[in-house]
Design a protein around this nucleic acid. Structure first.
Lengths: 226, 226
DNA sequence: CGCATCTTTGAGGAGTCTCAAGAGAGGTGG
DNA sequence: CCACCTCTCTTGAGACTCCTCAAAGATGCG
């Protein structure tokens, strides 16, 4: 891991991230004041569950996996964050202890914002508070979605769902590239890698063609009623 | 369902709820401006998933279950809310559509706050924004906990966990009364009622005694390493 | 006391995990 | 350019957990 200052292009990525994009430029700049950047190898740990921490992390490139550890060492993914997504907001507004482990799932660059500054700005600037509220509500909803999917859907259904969520509405057949390793996708969907593999096998019979990271869908209908 | 005005005791319950308790009295009063109260039978639906809605609900008494429906009609509980807890905050700060179904799990009384007013106050009063942020972060963490438990723990482990969460720290043996039907507990833990029953059977061998809604724990150690 | 509802128990089956081994892809060095 | 190595992914087999359906046993309420 190496620590650096923000470059111009880092700034550009940050300012175009959803959270910052909806803020007035001056507020966004104020938050970035004092931000640092660090690079990480795949499998590097960014922080550990229950560690005291007062940083919010923004992914600039790469992929960060957020997971909890079971007593037996098994891992349960809570979220997988890509470019422009924020991590650790909950902790900063609760007890300043990480709620999960964060690990780079591939070589990654992240920015660290000071939680103290964020709290201060949230208190002073209602635009910032508003943006944070929306962000956290959105995170909450995502987690709810995950929970509901886990409880309601089988493995192939979850995978079908995931694929459909990448499908532009209205198109009958389409294709896209998985944004990360199948390994990581399996974790995100709450499956063992083998289960994901088998799910793809099942979906093959419904017109899903998988070649490496490329996914091709022939018949959207068949997927939807899975 | 009957709709009423706020009584004095309703007000008292609201003001002592966690969210309101940390607000200055005047801010809390401002939010309660225009609130209404309604009573519901068990199994009454308060709102349906995807319904346009701009209310936040506070449970005054009884129990409200929040769940999503699968295509086959199966239900997945997202949360179970008791006296003083708030429902629907996410929706009010996102697209004003309910993210789940809400149903009274027993005869219940709830207050409805106007989402518009809440948004307005959050923008004007940083105390309100702060309190909302903490509330939503807390909800998010709860949901994460649920997700992680689902993925990491077996049925008996989840039940043991639940029991331990009701145990005052430091006590070796203790007992308490379930705050709701086993039916509802099963849903909250993501189990079929039969699975909960069997989990209790398993735990019986580790010193857990179940009589109706009363739970008694003889040996905390045994539970913890389950 | 009787009925409706909730809970427990049993049996069978669907779904997912684990372990183990084989196939494929991508990168490195000769 | 090919052989080799590593890492990822797939496939198979067996075990385990939890669900579903069915029926019997509690519990609570009128």
């Amino acid at each position: 891991m190496k620590t650096l200052r923000l470059t111009m292009s880092d700034r550009a990525i940050l300012l175009s991230a959803r959270f910052f994009a909806r803020l007035p430029r001056t507020a966004a700049e104020a938050i970035l004041e004092g931000a640092t950047v660090s690079t990480h190898e795949a499998h590097d740990t960014l922080f550990r569950q229950d560690d005291p921490t007062d940083d919010v992390i923004v992914v600039l490139s790469g992929l960060v996996r957020l997971f909890r550890l079971g007593k037996d060492g098994r891992e349960a993914d809570i979220a997988v964050s890509q470019k422009g997504e924020m991590i650790g907001v909950n902790a900063v507004f609760l007890d300043r202890r990480a709620t999960a482990n964060a690990q780079a799932a591939e070589p990654s660059i992240v920015a660290r914002l000071e939680g103290g500054k964020l709290r201060q700005l949230a208190a002073e600037d209602s635009d910032v508070a508003q943006a944070l509220l929306e962000l956290v509500c959105h995170h909450g909803k995502m987690t709810e979605d995950c929970l509901a999917e886990d409880r309601l859907l089988t493995a192939p259904q979850r995978v079908a769902n995931y694929i459909l969520s990448h499908c532009p509405i209205g198109s009958e057949s389409f294709s896209f590239r998985l944004p990360f390793q199948k390994n990581v996708l399996a974790g995100k969907l709450g499956l063992a890698p083998e289960a994901l593999s088998r799910a793809f096998s099942t979906l093959r019979r419904s017109g899903v063609i998988v070649k490496g990271r490329m996914i091709e869908i022939r018949d959207r209908q068949a997927l939807e009623q899975f």
